[in-house]
Write a protein that binds this DNA or RNA. Sequence first.
DNA 1: GTCTATAGCACGATAGAC
DNA 2: GTCTATCGTGCTATAGAC
Lengths: 186, 186
Amino acid sequence: MPWSPEQKQQSRERILASAAKLFTRQGFDHVGINEVMVDAGMTRGAFYAHFSSKAELYAESIGTAARAAHSRAREAMNDEFDLDTVVRGYLSEAHRSGEQINCPLALLITDIGQRDDKVREAYTRVFRGFVGLIDENSAKGEAISQEALQKAVLMVGGLAISRALNDDQLAAQLLDACRGGVLKNS
Amino acid sequence: MPWSPEQKQQSRERILASAAKLFTRQGFDHVGINEVMVDAGMTRGAFYAHFSSKAELYAESIGTAARAAHSRAREAMNDEFDLDTVVRGYLSEAHRSGEQINCPLALLITDIGQRDDKVREAYTRVFRGFVGLIDENSAKGEAISQEALQKAVLMVGGLAISRALNDDQLAAQLLDACRGGVLKNS
DNA sequence: GTCTATAGCACGATAGAC
DNA sequence: GTCTATCGTGCTATAGAC
């Protein structure tokens, strides 16, 4: 049976969706190509008809993961897009435990580190988009405000650190403090 | 030739120092036992006379890395321990580029994630110590203040995110914004 | 305690049939 | 395009000599 371009595109998107989910949760090194392909309903061998390497898949999947997290966040808040609701959902125990959202900015901070330039570029682009979302002035095309950058760090950094901590009570205090810091002046 | 307990202790400390340096810079998965042992002046085989597994070494080396970073930070600021100097050194381009300090809290945030409990416990202990250092009220034995937690997140999270970014100018803006946020009320 | 040598396994990437 | 099979490599951990 022949394969249409549409079918190839669908396979590619299934691979990207599986990769986004698995990479975001487990990081680059703990996810194998085999694992991604099985999750996408195929086997190892088919992978290289779509991507030339695991690193290329990783770079592309960061954008996919960000879009998926964004749409999951929208769902969770029933399209109420005020900053207060966004922050409470993002800095929540549900996000910390991985039940919701799974923002790649937070879950992959250290994973990006010394990897190739395409990967860091993709991460940087997603971060810019995140800052734009929480910056009330961004629509005016002005420079990025210090306040927006601080809020982004409190959200992304706060969530990431809370996930590394062993102590649930301390993690809850941390998330609470970050919510307070972000919402203080708004 | 026999080996004294002192020599064994010295070997152990050389292994820990090498592990702390390498793990902090490259993360758990990108450092091999061989690499650690060569850096410490020994060969693979000797490792298991000191530690029972790579994971055990990792858990112990987090504390070692934190103490080393702390003492490097002290040196860099000539024992002036005011918060202003600490923050400017921590949220600096030199720290971002890895030339100085190399705080394991920031460099390993995501690396800790889903690892075993000893590792996350070690990370949590170091984080508590870090918060205590920047909390002016901690000496009084009071509860951890929201302000201290926010400052810790701005420092650790800000540095970590700046290292993931591809764009040096954006990273500089980010570090600047975090410095401003930490020092605003002090 | 430290060495050399190797078992055992996991994974990325490729080859060739269909 | 997808499959099965495999090569090559790198790594943790162990075995045994000194």
